[in-house]
Simulated scan of single mutants.
Amino acid sequence: MRTLVLIHGRSQQRKDSKALKQEWLDALHTGFRAAGLDVDLPTEQVRFPYYGDTLDDLVKNAGGKPAEVIIQSAGEPNPAELEFLAAAVSDTVATVGLTEEDIRAHAEDGAVVEQGVQNWPWVLAALRALENVPGLGNASLALATLDVYRYLRNPGIQTIIEGGVRKAFDSAGEFVVVGHSLGSVVAYDVLRRRAAAEGWSAPHFVTVGSPLAVGTIVEALAPIGTPDGVRTWFNAYDPQDVVSLHPLDEAHFPVTPAIENVTVHNGTPNRHGIVGYLSDPTVASRIHAALTD
């Protein structure tokens, strides 16, 4: 059986890494049972690189309305971050079908005129409007997008996170890699840049709740491509999960060979939680097949 590498996303700071790993495994075993699979996955067969505390400084204020938390976290975003976030929010607004009237209704002064970083009140109003779309939850798109931006653009953060994740791999044996949320970006980036050079064998890649198809993230990662050595790539997303707004398909994340995309219903309150993805029988059965084929 291959070794399973689980790469978590944001908001995992100050947590017990062993307990967090067990939460993932419990959810996965729930999915195994739902799929009718009798699987005993030893914990030593699973590696869980933990980098949650590294991201702790990215979000300093956990209180207040989510839209306001965005500009209070780690100081006000700089112009490049604002432009990145504004583009992601605009993409989301268009995809879920919000109108300018919807957004104007959530502006503090009613004077929202145009999209983009040039009109930051529009971005905040759009985030507030997204809060009221059923299933979209708590502005996790904005927080996840800023974290992705800082990971991709801050060499210090990237180096520390990559250093921790690389310890989960070695040149012996084969790996199945599962990345959730920001963790899917980290997993993709590390595999793409390091797998061949380090001699890692990771033939099967699984992403869940992934923001990789957000337009600004695709642009930041360009040129995109399947990481060396990956033979199959399975992606699961809930259409109501605002972070994984688009499938990783030809229109949004064109790579060869094509990624297999499956829609699932994530039963967690924000439709983005890892438990809701791993406990899904389709996701669990694909992970099991990747481990044992």
Rank of each mutant, 00 (worst) to 15 (best):
91 D>V: 01
7 I>Y: 05
271 R>P: 06
282 T>Y: 15
129 A>Y: 03
289 A>L: 10
97 G>I: 03
231 R>N: 12
143 L>G: 00
284 A>S: 11
88 A>C: 06
224 I>S: 01
227 P>S: 08
89 V>C: 04
268 T>N: 04
236 A>T: 14
142 A>P: 01
56 D>C: 04
180 H>A: 12
219 E>T: 03
118 Q>K: 15
72 Q>S: 06
240 Q>A: 11
9 G>Y: 05
116 G>M: 10
285 S>P: 00
109 D>A: 08
63 G>L: 13
285 S>D: 09
56 D>T: 05
3 T>K: 14
47 R>D: 09
43 T>G: 04
51 Y>R: 12
228 D>R: 06
192 R>P: 00
253 F>W: 13
96 V>K: 08
204 H>W: 09
283 V>Q: 07
48 F>M: 09
207 T>W: 00
145 T>R: 11
213 A>M: 10
191 L>H: 11
258 A>R: 10
202 A>T: 15
16 D>G: 00
63 G>N: 05
199 G>N: 13
274 I>E: 05
29 H>L: 05
255 V>G: 00
75 G>W: 02
291 L>G: 02
29 H>K: 08
253 F>V: 10
250 E>Y: 03
69 V>Q: 06
159 T>C: 01
97 G>S: 11
15 K>H: 07
134 P>E: 06
158 Q>V: 00
124 L>W: 00
226 T>Y: 01
205 F>K: 04
86 A>L: 13
144 A>C: 11
288 H>I: 11
252 H>P: 04
23 E>T: 15
66 P>F: 15
256 T>E: 15
232 T>Q: 13
284 A>Q: 13
26 D>E: 15
222 A>I: 02
182 L>S: 01
128 R>F: 05
183 G>I: 03
19 A>N: 03
229 G>A: 06
63 G>Q: 09
288 H>E: 13
10 R>M: 12
177 V>K: 08
32 F>N: 04
219 E>W: 00
226 T>I: 15
197 A>M: 12
292 T>I: 04
105 A>T: 03
289 A>M: 14
261 N>E: 01
111 A>G: 11
273 G>S: 11
199 G>E: 12
124 L>N: 00
79 P>M: 15
127 L>I: 09
41 L>P: 12
43 T>D: 14
141 L>Q: 05
153 R>T: 03
206 V>M: 09
277 Y>H: 11
45 Q>T: 13
247 P>G: 13
110 G>N: 15
111 A>D: 10
52 G>A: 04
236 A>D: 12
37 L>P: 15
102 D>S: 10
221 L>W: 07
106 H>C: 14
251 A>T: 09
35 A>L: 05
84 F>D: 02
204 H>C: 10
227 P>W: 14
12 Q>T: 14
247 P>T: 15
272 H>L: 06
141 L>Y: 07
256 T>I: 11
74 A>Y: 08
107 A>C: 12
27 A>I: 10
148 V>E: 03
286 R>G: 02
55 L>M: 11
138 N>S: 01
118 Q>D: 12
196 A>T: 06
214 V>E: 02
8 H>R: 07
264 V>P: 13
254 P>R: 11
133 V>I: 10
15 K>T: 06
183 G>L: 03
151 Y>E: 03
26 D>N: 14
205 F>A: 01
26 D>I: 15
195 A>W: 14
251 A>P: 02
201 S>N: 14
247 P>V: 15
65 K>Q: 06
201 S>V: 10
41 L>E: 07
69 V>T: 07
195 A>Q: 13
